[in-house]
């Protein structure tokens, strides 16, 4: 269920009482409604599902999660762990 992907807000405008953003996904852009993420501003990343942003990507949390993953990668190398898929 629920294919949602991160995209970057390029600009946001008010149309018919709704807040519409132009969102960049890789090399393409598409409109998405930003009414559920009023705090999100151009430059921010949002998770978009069927044309609606459902959450703003928290960059600090993303960095923290990724740093943890990287640490695990470093540890694996340092400890020379060779277990893994057969």
């Amino acid at each position: 269920m629920c294919l949602a992907i991160p995209g970057k807000i390029l600009e946001a405008t008010e149309i018919g009482g709704l807040r519409l953003g132009r969102i960049q996904f890789g090399g393409v852009t598409r409109q998405a409604y930003l009414d559920y993420v009023p705090e999100a501003q151009p430059g921010d990343y949002v998770m978009v599902h069927v044309g609606f942003a459902i959450s703003k990507v928290d960059e600090a949390e993303a960095q923290r999660t990724y740093a943890q993953l990287q640490l695990m990668g470093v540890l694996k190398e340092e400890l020379g762990i060779v277990e893994g898929p057969k």
Partner: peptide, 22 residues
């Protein structure tokens, strides 16, 4: 693509897999 590509890194995947095995 930001917030997608870094979560598809094969080397890090190996590290997590190794930890699960452990």
């Amino acid at each position: 693509m930001k917030f997608l590509d870094e979560y598809r890194d094969p080397a890090l995947a190996q590290a997590i897999v190794a930890d699960i095995h452990r």
